[in-house]
Structures are given as structure tokens and as C-alpha cells.
Simulated assay, not measured.
Amino acid sequence: MSPTDRHDRTDRPGSGSLLTARGIQKSFGTNHVLRGVDLEVQPGEVVALIGPSGSGKTTVLRSLNGLETPDAGVLELDGGPVVDFGAQAAARAGGWAHRRAGVRRAKVERAALRDRSAMVFQHHNLFPHRTVLDNVIEGPTQVKRIPRATAIGRAEELLARVGLADKRDAYPHELSGGQQQRVGIVRALALGPDLLLFDEPTSALDPELVGEVLSVMKELADEGWTMVVVTHELQFARQVADEVLFLDGGVVVERGAPAQMFSQPAEERTRRFLDRILHPLD
């Protein structure tokens, strides 16, 4: 399936959203990082988040699986959980009993979010003292409680799929950056998530290694995995994403299909950003 074909797909399951986020706000001290972000992702869609450094993209992504706790807003995954961050904040601000109940509920809800999603990080985050195989099966065996033999079989299948079957017993320091990131993707897939989250997965790689990681991500997109991707790889976003969101200053300035966003953006701020990235020498 070519990237053009992907954008014309009519076989997406249903019309209900897998993920809906409304009014997500987050501050770190006096720095108001997110100022009411809305996000909706259909099953099988790829949504790309683009924007300048410090625009809030990574904070949005980390909020989707509980690595960050927003100050306000609602996050809903089809089939649960539904997380009201404003209610959590109010509970924490209440009396001792309310705080205790709020903390308990927040832990349960964060665990539920992480059970439905998996993150691929910018810097791999592999355990350096463990083999590739052990890195991949850590989550399935320790978090999902999948039998070790089953987890190993699945890990070996996934490693073969991304061309790393022969690296099963290698350690991270024996791999290239691109190979390490492919292991990171396999580690996420091994959890069987409904939602894959990518936080600038190629930004720490040497330029010649970027393609091998993007190739794996394109294959996942064509297979129908639901993905939210923070990226500076605008060509990838143009070819693979179903929707592109441009963030700046903690808000979604503009959103739309890639063809519209990259050829005729509606907002001047979007146009300036794209011109600076796509035509740096003009």
C-alpha cells in the first residue's frame, strides 16, 4: 500500500474515536506548557504532531499514557479509562481523605492508560545491562504477566520482522542507533497496545540511520496501527499521517490533512514554520 493509498482508505473500523482528549492543560511552575489542547484519533489513524521546540508536543504525548498528569482536561480511550484531570486536581487540593482518594484514583487511571498504549522514546531507553531479548520481554512478562515462553516467541517474531533476528542476544552497546530504536519499537509492539506513541523517534539518530526507523513506522501505519507521532520529519508526516496538528505556545494553531497543511496552510504562523523548515536557505 502506497502512502497515497493510505490517505484514501475506506476500510477504517467504525466511526468512533479510539482516543479523545479535550481541554488538556499543563503547567510546570509558572510555565503554562499546554493551554487547552484537543485531540481525537480514530482507530487505524496516524496523527502527527509538529511544531517548534517548546511548543508542548512531547507534553501532550506524555499526557496520553500517564507519564505526565495534566492540571485540567479530560482524556478518554474507547472502552476506558475516562480520566478527568480537573477532578484529580480538585481532589488533591481537598482534605486529607480527598487527597488520599485522589492519589489512589490517579494511580489506577495512569495504570489503565499505560495498559492501552506504548511509548517509543527519543533516546531508546533500553536497559544497557540486558540483552535485546530481555529488553523486549520485560514489559510483557513483568507488567502483562505473559508467560515467559510466550513472550519470547512473540519477541523473536517481532525482531525478525524488523530485521534484527540475529541481534537477539546482543547488548544495546553492540547495536547502531537505528538498531536500538528498532528494538525500542519492538519493545512497544510486544505489549500489544491499542495506541502507539512516538516521541521524536529519529531526532537522536545520525542522518543515515533515520530511514531504517521511518521505514518500520511506515509499515506499521500501512498495517493499520493507531499512532500518534511527535516528529520533525515533515516528509514522513506528509506521506504517512492522516492528520497533522501544528502546535505552538501550548495550543493547536492548525490541524488538517497533510495535503492541505503542507501546500495551503490556513494560518500565517503555520506558513512561517513550514517555510523555515522546508526552505531553510531561502
Rank of each mutant, 00 (worst) to 15 (best):
I24H: 01
E68M: 01
A101M: 09
S15C: 13
L75S: 05
R92L: 14
P70G: 03
D84M: 03
V33R: 11
R99T: 05
V41W: 09
Q88L: 14
I137N: 02
G51A: 04
E109Q: 15
R104P: 09
G80F: 07
G139W: 02
S117M: 08
V83K: 03
E45V: 07
R92K: 08
D84K: 06
V46H: 03
S117G: 07
A118G: 06
R116K: 15
R62N: 02
E68F: 00
G86T: 07
V136A: 01
R130I: 09
D134G: 11
G139Q: 07
R104S: 14
D38C: 13
E45L: 06
G14H: 10
K107Y: 12
R116Y: 06
V74R: 09
V83L: 07
L67T: 00
T58W: 01
V74T: 13
G44C: 08
G56Q: 00
R110N: 09
G66D: 00
R104D: 14
Q25P: 04
R114W: 05
R35E: 11
D134I: 10
R105K: 12
G23Y: 07
Q122Y: 10
R12T: 13
F85H: 05
T59W: 00
V33M: 13
R116D: 11
R110A: 12
N31K: 10
V41D: 08
S53T: 14
N65C: 03
G80K: 11
V74K: 04
L39R: 01
L77Q: 06
P52F: 08
G14R: 09
D71G: 08
F127T: 10
S17K: 15
R104H: 15
R104W: 13
D38G: 15
P140T: 00
I137Y: 05
I137D: 02
D84N: 11
V136S: 01
R12A: 12
V132S: 06
V120P: 04
N135F: 04
G54T: 06
V47M: 10
V41K: 09
P81D: 06
V83S: 04
E40T: 15
F121P: 01
R99I: 05
V46E: 05
A111Y: 07
G29F: 06
V33P: 09
G56H: 00
N31T: 12
D78N: 12
N65T: 03
S17P: 15
E76P: 04
P140V: 00
S53V: 14
G73M: 03
R100H: 14
